[in-house]
Design a protein around this nucleic acid. Structure first.
Lengths: 227, 227
DNA sequence: ATTTTTTTGTGATATATATCATATTTTTTA
DNA sequence: TAAAAAATATGATATATATCACAAAAAAAT
């Protein structure tokens, strides 16, 4: 659904666009559209040529990709954040699909205009560089952690990720099905079920369907570290 | 070993510094030093505060990181390439260590001066953004592939990576021990040995110690895709 | 409200890969 | 050049996790 899009004084302004001057913000407003998505709506699909920078203004989304029948969830991203800058700036197709995990608002910004701001405003450019740098470090951590932990460790880590990085509350609703959870941490839905019920039995979490409350954060951290 | 460092007319100039003007190159020369490393020398260590942008001018290196006794090789990088920009620009400690896998020359560039170029030269800034974008896509591919392939597939993929991305020849010397190979693709040294001898027996490769010749590229690609 | 579809839980079994053990080869050091 | 250390190969066994099978619960569709 098309949203009225106001860049000047936008309550969800990105840390980069805060550096844009009034006339640049007016330009931005003209070259961008805001669109709202409902849970499970596809925001963009992999292998589509990317001609827009995408700004996740509000909501939580998953980035995912298919290979020969199997699917993997690469990343879970919360607003505010840019999506698909790498594909867009390399004149490439989107490497992954993006699907809303909650009701979401997204701005599509014309690539060429976005690039103009990089050329006209060095503070903006530097901020974009910093965003890309942060993303790379997060991705590195993710790769590294995943390869060094067993299933229990990865599930503990993910529960802590939801708590610390997404919801900031010990009580939350897992925004994934068991199957999606498995596709995120590279395991089967059955293993996710088993470990979650184990954590529940051990009073580390309180689990009812998708509702979780973290009861023993300390222990969850230990499991996350040592498997 | 300290190298004489000439930025203007440097034969290993990066795609970004090609955009620098003569006076900027002179500045660059003043704020950077070139250092040569021998195979197995440590270029920088993880958890060290990063105050330089590091440009890999010549050679092949591994980026690696330890956790509680175990080690993982995160990436193998060939010149020309920048290293550690994310850590440097986020005022952070290096996330990983870098060790030379061949004789190597590296330039250390003062972070603040490098940042000045981003502010003074938009073409340079944009090129750096593109470098970061490329790195992110490579990292994403790596994460994705690793999680979807079995050991045979990952070894086949790595052999093709050495051929296509590093040496550009079907005959090369694996720049890793079996143990390091295992730490790169998240498996044990024994599994690496077994699969490599299997490939050798099946005439897919010709293997003598670290010397490899790819005999059946097509089949290696199929194994890489389907495990 | 009832039917259909999707999601989840859990036991039994299979399997890929790790780990252990030992021999051999290669490399490094003295 | 010999001795010591490191790297490699390979068989035997252990183990974590996947897969299969089926039942139950929850969600979606009619």
């Amino acid at each position: 659904m098309l949203e009225k899009n106001k860049c000047f004084g936008c309550e969800f302004q990105s840390s980069a666009t805060k550096f844009l001057k009034t006339e640049e913000l007016e330009k931005l407003e003209k070259c961008s559209v805001g669109i709202s998505f409902k849970k499970n709506d596809i925001i963009f699909k992999e292998n589509i040529f990317s001609s827009n920078v995408i700004y996740l203004k509000k909501g939580i989304i998953k980035l995912h990709k298919k290979t020969s029948s199997k699917e993997k969830i690469i990343k879970i991203v919360k607003s505010p954040n840019y999506l698909g800058i790498p594909a867009t700036f390399n004149e490439k197709f989107h490497y992954y699909s993006a699907t809303a995990l909650s009701d979401t608002i997204v701005c599509f910004i014309q690539k060429e205009k976005f690039k103009d701001f990089i050329y006209s405003n060095a503070d903006f450019a530097y901020k974009i560089i910093k965003c890309l740098c942060e993303n790379e470090i997060i991705l590195l951590e993710q790769c590294f952690n995943k390869s060094k932990k067993n299933v229990r460790g990865r599930i503990a880590e993910t529960l802590l990720f939801f708590y610390n990085k997404i919801f900031h509350k010990k009580k939350f609703i897992i925004p994934l099905t068991r199957d999606e959870f498995g596709k995120y941490i590279d395991t089967s839905r059955e293993s996710v079920s088993r470990v979650l019920t184990e954590f529940n039995n051990d009073k580390i979490i309180n689990l009812t369907a998708k509702n979780v409350e973290i009861l023993n954060e300390k222990l969850l951290e230990i499991i996350s570290e040592n498997g």
